[in-house]
Write a protein that binds this DNA or RNA. Structure first.
Lengths: 188, 188
DNA sequence: TACACTTTTCAGTAATTCTTGAAAATTCAA
DNA sequence: TTGAATTTTCAAGAATTACTGAAAAGTGTA
């Protein structure tokens, strides 16, 4: 398979972008290709299209599988595995976010929690703990909020996003209601 | 300066995390140190604390400056520069998000826009454009929403986040109001 | 301007990460 | 069970990125 210039540009861009993240060029390019491909591709097709060795592609696909970003299927009378990216881009986005959380956020939160459990005496450490608590609270707040919001129906999520900062008006409304109801409200 | 075990753990963790992102270990460690430090530090203090060469620290600090993540100040009678991380962790978070957007999201959006301007004929390219449009729209929606939300007062932002998915109730309320008002509503 | 101090640059080396071909392992049909 | 097709592993080389010391450049004071 030969890439069209349009697809080539797209694929190369994600190769570059990949290296800015921890992801390597091969993996970025493979996923970009799967993302735009009309049909699932097998490893040989990918290797040929991108000019990577078969083994490199194999490793790249394994990496993508570990991120749960690919789907595998078979064709009748063909033993090779055919790979594709999910149809729904929101699903891709969600998976990416979840995996990053697992790999980066969760370990950081554990480290911070352990650090905050220690009772320390020096002024250096006391200050450090204060800073770590601020970080811990921010990360916990944003990730749990993100997890919450991600559970919403995409349709509702889109209308929330389109509302943008005007959501604030509704918050004010909520606060008024809370006031009227005598200070009762969400406990979180 | 000698790091306490508490701070050492924190610093090493962000060194590791840094390498998972595009950021290198040195830069991660330097910023972690500045973040928990009680007082601004000069380059020599940082180099000694982390065991890096002076020149490596200089490069790391330049990198952090390019991300607008550090503050520089001077002490009377001392010509050296003293570096610190902003007090407000929300400000740090915001800056980080803005810079990442500039460096990663904006170039991707331009690439996608250009790709979508082209008129293509083949079925491959038509499908690729459809996928690129989906990606473009998702990125545009999420980033403009994020930018919007970031303009909110931290206090309001926190209460939005604490509300979590229950924000949906308020959206439903909004939809009802829209309905009553005869379909009028936010235009975005 | 001269000088002491500080920061930056940069070429070379070290370390890490990527990529490959070949061999091993796996899978499935006969 | 055999054997062809396919995938995975892995050691070694290639490429990239990180790090250093030394030299250059910059800065402020006398």
């Amino acid at each position: 398979m030969n890439l069209t210039p349009l697809i080539q540009t797209f694929v190369l861009h994600f190769g570059e972008m990949g290296s800015r993240w921890g992801i390597n060029r091969t993996v970025g390019q493979i996923y970009a290709l799967l993302y735009v491909a009309r049909e699932p591709l097998n490893a040989d097709e990918i290797a040929e299209a991108l000019g990577f060795s078969r083994s490199n592609v194999s490793m790249g696909l394994k990496e993508l599988e570990s991120w749960r970003l690919t789907r595998v299927q078979h064709k009748p009378g063909d033993r090779r595995e055919y790979f594709s990216a999910p149809e729904d881009i929101w699903a891709i986005f969600r998976t990416l976010a979840e995996e990053r959380r697992k790999r980066e956020v969760d370990p950081t939160l554990s480290m911070l929690r352990e650090a905050l459990m220690q009772s320390v005496s020096g002024a250096e450490d006391q200050h450090a703990q204060k800073r770590m608590r601020e970080m811990h609270d921010l990360i916990e707040l944003t990730t749990s909020w993100f997890a919450d919001v991600q559970k919403m129906e995409p349709k509702n999520l889109v209308s929330l996003m389109k509302l943008g900062a005007r959501v604030q008006k509704f918050l004010e409304m909520k606060d008024k209601l809370k006031l009227v109801a005598g200070g009762k409200g969400p406990s979180a």
